[in-house]
């Protein structure tokens, strides 16, 4: 589903997608560490990297990609993630679990959010 409005908060740390009356809100950090880019996901599950230290990351700019996605440009220079509408919805729906998994992964690897 295509959102009607894509809103970046004033502090640039929160992205809101509006689908009619429903809204999904995600933090820049959450989006950054779950970037669909090959730089993060690799080309197979085994290559997936755990991105750490992004608590302070913010989104500089948003670009539309055709009819199907947006590209988020983060202030740490990461600009290769193409977030399809479908992927954004999956992220939002699985938000709590994905976040919990991410935190435990950080802990397991001895990394942190700062």
């Amino acid at each position: 589903m295509i959102p009607e409005n894509i809103i970046l908060s004033e502090n640039k740390k929160e992205l809101t997608l509006e689908y009619g009356a429903t809204k999904s809100v995600m933090s820049a950090e959450f989006l950054r560490v779950n970037s669909p880019s090959a730089e993060v996901k690799g080309h197979s599950p085994a290559q997936k990297k755990t991105v750490s230290g992004k608590r302070a990351v913010s989104i500089n700019s948003i670009e539309l990609v055709g009819n199907y996605a947006i590209k988020l440009i983060f202030d740490d220079g990461h600009a290769t993630g193409i977030y399809t509408w479908q992927y954004l919805q999956e992220l939002f729906k699985g938000k709590d679990k994905i976040w919990k998994d991410y935190i435990s992964e950080l802990r397991k690897k001895g990394l942190n959010r700062d």
Partner: peptide
């Protein structure tokens, strides 16, 4: 009519 979203940067 099912056109593209608005991007709003505050």
């Amino acid at each position: 009519s099912s056109s593209k979203p608005n991007i709003i940067i505050n």
